[in-house]
């Protein structure tokens, strides 16, 4: 700290000179290529490919009753571990998608999500494309370049709705998503798409009221068409 003043003066002079050499162009940052994040995600997965969801989550397989809302919103260490596990699976899917040596996933279906009569107004002009990715043991829904209008105080949630031959519904959450999400979301392993005649992908607004069932405020929805 003894030469602190001298150091500051040098820094000031340097900042002064640099600022004077800058132009408005220097203030504009370029967006990275769109596929760069996928490459990074894939490489992170390649660092620890042996981890699987069940082992990492620290959660007993029989411990099925999970308060999803409190876990998301408190950001506990447990949640971090669970999130880590899920991302690993997604990493696996992305690795396969980017042409890695051991491709183990394929596109198993896609869905075009549109606004339907009775849905919330925000979805009226929206179309979201979804791709369903599958490995031997896991499936994921990849939302493509979806820009979703946020609602203050509410979350966006991604759902799968399975409809069986008798018309019975089975609903499963893929979790809270971000409004600019073009992300990949794992399908819960107890949601067996093959058990249903029809599977729908749905995005809804969910008030933060502790009720983890679907609010009914759907924005867009579409049927999965098998590839």
């Amino acid at each position: 700290m003894t030469d602190g003043n001298l150091q500051l003066d040098e820094d000031e002079a340097r900042i002064d000179a640099l600022l004077r050499s800058m132009t408005d162009d220097d203030l504009e940052f370029a967006a990275p290529p769109a596929d760069l994040w996928n490459d990074i995600e894939a490489a992170v997965f390649a660092d620890s490919p042996s981890v699987t969801v069940g082992e990492e989550s620290g959660e007993s397989p029989t411990n099925n009753v999970v308060d999803i809302t409190s876990r998301f919103r408190r950001g506990t260490a447990f949640f971090a571990a669970a999130a880590a596990a899920v991302v690993v699976v997604i990493g696996a899917l992305v690795v396969a998608a980017s042409g890695n040596d051991s491709p183990s996933f394929e596109v198993v279906g896609d869905a075009r999500l549109d606004w339907q009569e009775g849905f919330v107004d925000e979805g009226a002009e929206l179309t979201v494309d979804a791709t369903i990715l599958g490995t031997d043991s896991a499936q994921a829904v990849q939302l493509n370049a979806a820009a979703l209008p946020p609602r203050a105080g509410e979350d966006l949630e991604l759902w799968l709705i399975g409809i069986d031959a008798a018309g019975e519904l089975t609903i499963s959450t893929l979790g809270i998503i971000e409004s600019d999400a073009d992300g990949t979301y794992e399908v819960p392993d107890d949601f067996d798409s093959s058990a249903f005649d029809t599977v729908l992908v749905d995005i809804s607004y969910e008030p933060r009221d502790g009720d983890e069932t679907h609010s009914g405020a759907s924005i867009v929805r579409g049927e999965i068409i098998d590839a």
Binding site: N64, V66, I68, R71, F72, R73, G75, F79, A80, A82, A83, V86, V87, I90, Q116, E117, G118, A140, L158, W159, I161, G162, I163, E168, L169, T170, I171, S172, T173, L174, G175, I176, I177, E178, A181, G183, T184, Y185, E186, P188, D189, D190, F191, T198, L200, D202, E212, T213, H214, S215, G216, S218, R221, G222, E223
Partner: peptide
């Protein structure tokens, strides 16, 4: 089919599993 009422009391929920991408908030 696509317009099914998900708030119907007949709806059954599969086990909830954490989301892949959630802001943790710190």
């Amino acid at each position: 089919i696509i317009g099914v009422d998900v708030t119907s009391s007949r709806s059954r929920y599969a086990r909830n599993v954490s989301a892949a991408e959630v802001p943790i908030g710190h």
